[in-house]
Each structure stands twice: as structure tokens, then as C-alpha cells.
Simulated assay, not measured.
Amino acid sequence: MGIFDKAKDLAGQHSDQVDGLVDKGGDMVDERTGGKFAGQVDQGQDFVKGQYREGEVPPADVPPADAPPAEAPPADAPPAP
């Protein structure tokens, strides 16, 4: 068992405490970005929480960790038909 497996097991055993830390980190990001990325931060929080909770599956709208980031169209691009 590697160090990351041990960390994941410990986080799962103390999920209520880790949830608070994940929420606090997300709140700090929201505060520093003025809430500009609140949706993405919430998705990230849900994904992280799903990683250490036993048997819990992250929401379907959260992309896999190895997925490339979604690209936004240029600001001056015409709307898609």
C-alpha cells in the first residue's frame, strides 16, 4: 500500500473533517476570484469528496481527472447556429 492509498484511507475515515477543509479551500478560491469560477470550484469540490468517500460516485457532470480542460470560444467569435 502506497502513501497515497494510506492518505485516501485516512481521509475516508475522517470524511467529515476533510469535507470541511475541502469546503474551506473552495470558499477561499471563490473569495479570491470574486466567485467568477464558482461552478468549476463546486465541481472540483464534489470530485475531490468523491475520491475519498467509499463507494460514492462523483456527479456525472464532473469530468475525469485526466480529461483535457474545456476550451471557451474566443470572445469575438460569432454565436454557434
Rank of each mutant, 00 (worst) to 15 (best):
residue 1 M to A: 10
residue 1 M to L: 04
residue 2 G to Q: 10
residue 2 G to E: 08
residue 3 I to M: 14
residue 3 I to C: 02
residue 5 D to N: 08
residue 9 D to M: 12
residue 10 L to C: 01
residue 10 L to G: 00
residue 11 A to E: 05
residue 12 G to P: 01
residue 13 Q to D: 05
residue 13 Q to R: 10
residue 15 S to K: 15
residue 15 S to L: 05
residue 16 D to V: 12
residue 17 Q to D: 12
residue 17 Q to V: 13
residue 17 Q to W: 07
residue 18 V to F: 11
residue 19 D to K: 09
residue 20 G to A: 13
residue 21 L to E: 09
residue 21 L to W: 15
residue 22 V to K: 02
residue 22 V to S: 00
residue 24 K to F: 00
residue 25 G to V: 08
residue 25 G to W: 08
residue 26 G to S: 06
residue 26 G to D: 06
residue 27 D to K: 15
residue 28 M to N: 13
residue 29 V to M: 07
residue 29 V to N: 05
residue 30 D to N: 15
residue 30 D to Y: 00
residue 31 E to F: 12
residue 31 E to V: 14
residue 32 R to M: 05
residue 32 R to L: 08
residue 32 R to E: 08
residue 32 R to Y: 08
residue 34 G to P: 14
residue 36 K to L: 12
residue 36 K to D: 03
residue 36 K to Y: 11
residue 37 F to L: 03
residue 37 F to G: 00
residue 39 G to S: 13
residue 39 G to A: 09
residue 40 Q to K: 13
residue 40 Q to L: 04
residue 41 V to A: 05
residue 41 V to P: 03
residue 42 D to S: 09
residue 43 Q to P: 00
residue 43 Q to R: 14
residue 45 Q to M: 08
residue 46 D to Y: 00
residue 46 D to A: 14
residue 46 D to P: 02
residue 47 F to E: 04
residue 48 V to W: 01
residue 49 K to P: 05
residue 49 K to Q: 09
residue 49 K to Y: 09
residue 52 Y to C: 01
residue 52 Y to Q: 01
residue 53 R to P: 01
residue 53 R to I: 01
residue 53 R to D: 00
residue 53 R to C: 01
residue 53 R to V: 03
residue 54 E to L: 07
residue 55 G to C: 09
residue 56 E to P: 00
residue 57 V to I: 03
residue 57 V to C: 02
residue 57 V to H: 00
residue 58 P to T: 00
residue 58 P to V: 02
residue 58 P to R: 04
residue 59 P to M: 07
residue 61 D to I: 00
residue 62 V to T: 14
residue 63 P to F: 13
residue 64 P to Q: 08
residue 65 A to Q: 12
residue 66 D to L: 13
residue 68 P to Y: 12
residue 68 P to S: 09
residue 68 P to K: 13
residue 70 A to S: 12
residue 71 E to L: 15
residue 72 A to N: 13
residue 75 A to C: 06
residue 75 A to N: 11
residue 75 A to E: 15
residue 75 A to T: 15
residue 76 D to V: 09
residue 77 A to Y: 13
residue 78 P to D: 14
residue 78 P to C: 03
residue 78 P to S: 04
residue 79 P to I: 10
residue 80 A to M: 07
